[in-house]
Amino acid sequence: MSDGELEPRRGAAARGNQRASDADRDRAVELLRQAVGDGLLGLDEFSDRVDVVLAAVTRGEVESVLADFPGMPLFPPEPPFSEPPALALRTANGSVKQEGKWVVPRRILTQCGSGRVRIDFTRAVCRHTEIQLKVVCTGSGQVHLTVPRGWSIRIEELSTTSGRVIDKAADPYVPGSPFIRVSGELASGRLKVKHPRDA
Rank of each mutant, 00 (worst) to 15 (best):
T91E: 09
L87A: 12
A56W: 04
F69M: 13
G184C: 04
P196N: 07
A92P: 02
P178T: 01
A35Q: 09
H144E: 11
L40K: 14
A92L: 08
I131K: 00
I153W: 03
R10W: 11
V65T: 14
H128D: 02
D120N: 13
G176V: 09
D24P: 03
I131L: 07
F179L: 09
I131R: 00
F46V: 06
G100R: 06
S159G: 13
K101G: 03
G184Q: 05
R10D: 05
L133Y: 02
G150L: 03
K101I: 12
V193D: 01
T122P: 06
G37F: 10
G71I: 09
A169Y: 00
K192L: 03
E185A: 02
V182W: 00
G115D: 02
L40F: 08
S140R: 03
A170L: 15
Q98D: 07
E63K: 06
T129D: 15
A23M: 05
A35D: 08
R181D: 12
L74K: 01
G11V: 09
T146D: 08
I108Q: 03
R123M: 04
Q18E: 15
A170V: 10
A23I: 08
S188D: 14
E83G: 05
A124M: 01
P73M: 01
A86M: 05
V62G: 01
R25V: 05
L66D: 04
R59L: 07
R49T: 09
E5D: 13
C137A: 09
V52L: 11
P79V: 08
R33H: 12
V174I: 11
V117P: 01
D167F: 05
I108E: 01
S188R: 07
S177C: 09
A56H: 03
D38H: 14
P73K: 06
A124Y: 00
L31C: 13
A199I: 01
G11I: 07
M72C: 09
V136Y: 04
R33N: 06
L40T: 04
A14Q: 12
R164Y: 12
F46T: 03
S114H: 04
M72I: 11
V182L: 02
V182Q: 01
S152K: 15
K134C: 03
V103M: 12
K168R: 15
C137F: 00
V135W: 00
T110L: 11
R154H: 14
Q18A: 15
R127T: 11
